[in-house]
Design a protein around this nucleic acid. Structure first.
Lengths: 195, 195, 195, 195
DNA sequence: AATGAATGAGGTTTCATTCAT
DNA sequence: TATGAATGAAACCTCATTCAT
């Protein structure tokens, strides 16, 4: 069947290849990607897949972890030494970055967030992007930059706004208009009380 | 058991029975309900199902339509003859009603909104709840009650907020606190400019 | 693929067809028969198999039950009305019948008794042939025809003898010589004490 | 963990290590031990296994041979110089030793005797324990200690009794009662004719 | 002699949909 | 209109064995 010879790789490399192949496919085709497809794309055998991921969900979890980690690294709050952070701006940057990240994910986003997978494998507290947002809200409140709302709930609801903005862009909405709408909600909601 | 029980029903009645059986099951069990289960619950035969719904997705579509219709009827804006409508209050009522409706849907909501189905069968413009919200925004803007934002986008993003509020409640969040957080976002976002 | 049309049968009939196809194959080929083979032999589709037997083991269990039932019916102790039963003869007949039955089973016997299946699905007390033997021993003891040994253990060990006799025959041993050897063990072991 | 630990061993030693690891595992877990498990337990690599055993069955065969050899060495008939051997007692000792050996084998016994392996790789005439038994029967007959039955068949059937006794013990039966039942069968069957 | 990553045939099971009755 | 037995294309996962290093 296979004209190709056996490719022996360093496990870490092989693992990456599989993950990357899967990411490519999931981005393009969303939820109907099967193990079969992935190994084809990764030029690996069926069994090789299960050597690295006991289960399909384990692969998805790995991908999710990877993406979140990459995002966090790229957008860590620059705790500018000594400088007063402008929290609204920090938030805005993070929100836009998040929107862009979601869009870059294509169909993968659907799989990771809008599928049974999300329920079967709930994201860990530590990784949940909502917490990221929440901590910024808290910090901002502490600095007096944000209104004293329930940070946890606000984080959750505003994250939904950001998320939906991404979906709107993906659906063809104009980028600037969408970001404008998003920003208004973020700003107005968090604006401190006495104006 | 009963050898040849052939329940001949008025097509419309049979159709309703199937839909209702499916709703019951989907509410309870979410996405892992199969055709098999539905016909069992509806006391119909497998083939009968396909007499009424060429496809599983067609059933879901019917259910979605039904629910939206019911919601719209129950919460139509009482265009109180002549009376000046208080738009913020109208919006608030609708939002809360929507939250409650989502919660009442249980697992059905997951199936209709967070599954492949939603992508395979996008909701029709006419039915999309977002449009409902958007028209209220427009009307309110017209009456000077809401700020002049992009109604379509605001409708979309605020709908996401309402939707997420429902999910938060379903996840066990305290009702009053959650509604409070939601209301703040709606009000602040739509408050007319010069205050 | 299939030139054949769909064969709709009475479930009981179809069930029998599958069981019989499986029996035929298992007799011939012993343990390496797969669901695939069975449905081919039974002219059914893969799915049809699982309609009747949720699991391969369930099929085996059904076959085992069937065989035991058939054997019991064919060889029930003729409780000759009023007549004194000659227990040694009763036992002998049963033993020979059992040997013949095992041989008639061919490879099927191996599957049902010498495979993981036997451990995964232990035979129910009610069906276990050993109990059949044990009750005869008890009855015979009661009638003074057999020695007062531990009937349960004797039943077990003598059953092993009968079983092994069958295996010996299957391995090509001469029938009469083998039965002779078996009979000697049965008789000598059960002969009442004072001779 | 250790990057490149290459344990170069004397081939004979390595072979023993693998065999012993397998024995340990098979005793404990019976038929569901995989090559994987064995090499893990033996601290060897997958490939190393196949350096010593072309096939899984070859390993089992090696183990079987080893066990039989060990048993034979431990229980060789002490042809007591000149002394008249008491054959019934010799037989009894061997039988009990065999029962104990089977029990000591745990799950390994299942694998070697009640699995496809036994059919795929029939035991060699030379090793078959039945022959051991048969020769004792012959010798005993020669000495006039046993009845003149077909030794080969008696050996086979009585071996089944011994084997089943072991299984009964393994299944929790009381040791003394079981041995008693076994002994009765052996003695009665082999008792010389004219009493 | 030793390693362990890679292979892929093989087996089980599910379920939306079809169709003979 | 109604039935429910039948279908078969997936999809998942395992593990003895191979082979590049």
């Amino acid at each position: 069947m296979s004209a190709t010879t056996r490719r022996r790789l360093d496990p870490e490399v092989r693992r990456q290849e599989i993950i990357e192949a899967a990411e490519r496919l999931l981005k393009r085709n969303g939820p109907d990607v099967r193990v079969e497809d992935v190994v084809l794309e990764a030029a690996a055998a069926k069994g090789t897949f299960y050597l690295y991921f006991p289960t399909w969900d384990d692969l998805l979890e790995a991908i999710r972890g990877r993406i979140i980690k990459a995002f966090d690294e790229a957008h860590s709050v620059q705790s500018g030494a000594g400088a007063e952070l402008e929290w609204p701006r920090v938030l805005d940057r993070l929100a836009v970055a998040f929107v862009d990240a979601v869009i870059a994910m294509g169909g993968l986003h659907t799989v990771l967030w809008h599928t049974d997978f999300a329920r079967r494998r709930p994201i860990s507290e530590a990784d949940d992007p909502i917490n990221r947002l929440t901590s910024i809200l808290c910090a901002g409140q502490h600095a007096g930059a944000f209104a004293e709302v329930d940070a946890r709930l606000a984080g959750r609801l505003l994250f939904a706004v950001i998320h939906e903005t991404a979906d709107a862009l993906a659906a063809g909405e104009d980028r600037e208009r969408a970001l404008l709408a998003m920003r208004r909600i973020l700003q107005r909601t968090l604006e401190p009380e006495p104006r």
